[in-house]
Nucleic acid binder design. Structure first.
Length: 136
DNA sequence: CGGTTGACTCGCG
DNA sequence: TCGCGAGCCAACC
C-alpha cells in the first residue's frame, strides 16, 4: 500500500516544504537551508522562509521549529514577535537563550532513514545534507 | 513574461 | 567575533 507517500518530485517545491515542516517533531528544530535540501533544492533557504511567511499560519504548521543556520530565531516572525517565537519553541520543550538562539548541537532534527527514503532524495543531496548537518 | 521581494547564507574585511 | 554586501531561489504581482 503506497499511501502515506510523503512527497514526490512531481509536487511543487512549496508543497514539499510544507510537508517537510509538518514532519519536524516536537522538541526539535530544523534550519531553512536544511528544509530546502530536504525539499530537493540546495540553496533555496530564503525561498523556504518566504513560503513559511506566506503560508505558515494558513496551513497550521509548526513553523516555529524552523530557524536560521546560526540557531537564531527569525527576525520577521512577526513585527516584535520574536518573543512569541521564543515562547512557542519553549512550549515545544526547546531551550531558547536570552539572545534568542537555540543550541543546534542539541536540538537539530535528524530525519530518519525512512523519511529520507520516502522523500526520494537524490544521492548528491543526501551527501550534502550529511556533510552540512550531521553533528556527531 | 520579467522585475521585485525577502521568516536566508556565505565570505570578506 | 561582527557587520555588510553579494549571491540564490521560488513565489508574487
Amino acid at each position: 500500500m503506497g499511501q502515506d507517500r510523503l512527497s514526490s518530485p512531481s509536487q511543487s517545491f512549496r508543497d514539499r516544504v510544507l510537508l517537510i515542516v509538518s514532519l519536524i517533531p516536537r522538541g526539535k528544530v530544523a534550519t531553512y537551508g536544511q528544509v530546502a535540501l530536504l525539499a530537493g533544492v540546495a540553496g533555496a533557504a530564503q525561498a523556504v522562509g518566504n513560503i513559511l511567511h506566506v503560508a505558515g499560519y494558513t496551513h497550521d504548521l509548526p513553523f516555529q521549529r524552523v530557524i536560521n543556520q546560526k540557531g537564531g530565531l527569525a527576525r520577521g516572525y512577526s513585527p516584535s514577535g520574536i518573543l512569541s517565537h521564543k515562547r512557542a519553541l519553549e512550549a515545544d520543550g526547546v531551550e531558547v537563550s536570552k539572545d534568542f538562539t537555540v543550541n543546534l548541537k542539541k536540538y537539530l532534527w535528524h530525519p530518519s532513514e525512512a523519511i529520507l527514503n520516502q522523500l526520494q532524495l537524490p544521492v548528491d543531496l543526501r551527501i550534502e545534507l550529511a556533510a552540512r548537518y550531521k553533528l556527531h
